[in-house]
Structure formats: C-alpha cells, structure tokens
Nucleic acid binder design. Sequence first.
DNA 1: CGCTTCTTCAACCAACTGGTTGACAACGAT
DNA 2: ATCGTTGTCAACCAGTTGGTTGAAGAAGCG
Lengths: 122, 122
Amino acid sequence: MGDSTQQLDRAFAALADPTRRDLVARLSVSDATVGELAEPYDVSFQAISKHVKVLEEAGLVTRSKDAQRRPVHLNREAFDLMTQWIERYRREAEERYRRLDALLARTAQDDEDRRPDKEQAS
Amino acid sequence: MGDSTQQLDRAFAALADPTRRDLVARLSVSDATVGELAEPYDVSFQAISKHVKVLEEAGLVTRSKDAQRRPVHLNREAFDLMTQWIERYRREAEERYRRLDALLARTAQDDEDRRPDKEQAS
DNA sequence: CGCTTCTTCAACCAACTGGTTGACAACGAT
DNA sequence: ATCGTTGTCAACCAGTTGGTTGAAGAAGCG
C-alpha cells in the first residue's frame, strides 16, 4: 500500500500537464514513437522525450523495443488505479450526503412531533 | 472546452500531493475546518491552509462561512470531471486492443490459408 | 473596547519542473 | 567503417511549489 501512494503521486502529477494529457489522448488511438508524438508540437523533440519519460515513470505508458525505435503504448492498469482512488472517496462523500439528508429529514420530523402546538399541516 | 483543460490541470496537480489526497480522504468522512484538518500533521497550520487553497482553486472543495470558521467540504462534480477524462481514454485504448486482437486473429487465419504447404497444426 | 480564536497574506528559501541546447549512444543502411 | 535515424543524457535557466516565520484580518467574548 505504501508503494501505491508514490504510484498515485506520479500518475496524478503526470496528468496535470496538458501536453502529457494530449499525448495520452494521442496514444489512445494508436501506439507511436517519440518522434511521431513530437511532430505536432512546437517544442523540441527532447522536451517530448522528457514528457514520455514522466508518463513511463508514472506507469501510464510502457515501451517496447523495435530495432532503434521504441514504440510507446498506454498501460490501462495505471488508469484503473486512479479511477479507483477517485471513485472511492467520491462514493463515500455521496453516501455521507445521503445519510445527512436522511438525518435532516428525521430531525425535521422530530421537530414536528415535539411541537404539537404548532400548526401540523403547514 | 478550453476552460476544462485548466480545470483538469489544477485538479490533477492538486491530487498529485499525498497530503492533499489525505485531506480529501479526511473530508470524505465529514466536513472540517482548516484547524481540524491541520491537527494531525506535523507541518505548520499555514501549510495546510495553503493545501486547502490549492484544493479550492482546483474546484475539488468549497468553503462555507460559519462565523469565523470556514468549514471545508468536498465538491463531487470536480471528481466526476476527472474520472470522465480518464475513463474516456481508457475505454478508447481498450476498444483499440479488442480490434487489434481481432485483426491479429484474422491475420493468423489468413497466414494459414495462404500457406497450405506449411504444417497446419503446429 | 480589548482579548482570544481561526484563518489568511507576505516574504523568503530549497527543491522541483518544463523548457532549451549540445553531446552521445544504439541500430540500420550504404 | 561511415552515415543517417532515433532517441536519451547532461547542464543550464526561469518559473512554480511546499515549506517556514511573522504580521494582519475578521468574528465572537470578556
């Protein structure tokens, strides 16, 4: 579990950059080499190489070796880790709100019960 | 759409920090003031205040005003934005792999068809 | 009013990040 | 063996980030 913390650190940090999210979108269509990935951008080839390295260290992509080319491809499991984290707390918060609503409804009912002198069908 | 880019930038960056993810986990249980949030940590109170500000600017939490207290609570919609982004590309990649598998299966079949001289049950 | 509580703002520092350029490693082709 | 292609590594620079401390704002309480 202590390792998944660092994994999440890197995965979220990696996707915080719009260029890297763009690369992920591109890679969701097909695998590509660093050169192909860099082509649409104004920045230097090396900058994109760095971005890919960040994605790789975050576990979001992997590389295979094909002669001197290193095609990059997405690693779906890393994305699952992130959605699991997010969904967990989103769900807990949601559940809490449902309980809170129920509590409020119950409290309102109690208030009515406790004051029979007040108008009951208001 | 151009705005959701910046929103995602900040949301992912905010969750890249383990302390901030911890705060989110804490807030999924119940709303809390900055003071309550800061209590378990060694770092200064102001550091936690900064973290909360980052979460707020990312849209992940909001604050209400209760006298001099500012209770912090999670904003579920911001989390939805992130999961939607992740799930979109995860799903596209998944679909692509299914197509690739199908293509490979078909190609293998073609190879067998095209070479009847080779051993067929290898 | 003055005092305490909760919180933010400002200035500063060390570390990290995204960009650059230049050198170089690995492999295929000639 | 040399050349071109593909990609990484190293050094550097500017901007951001997470932390600190100190001062100050805002709201309740004596």
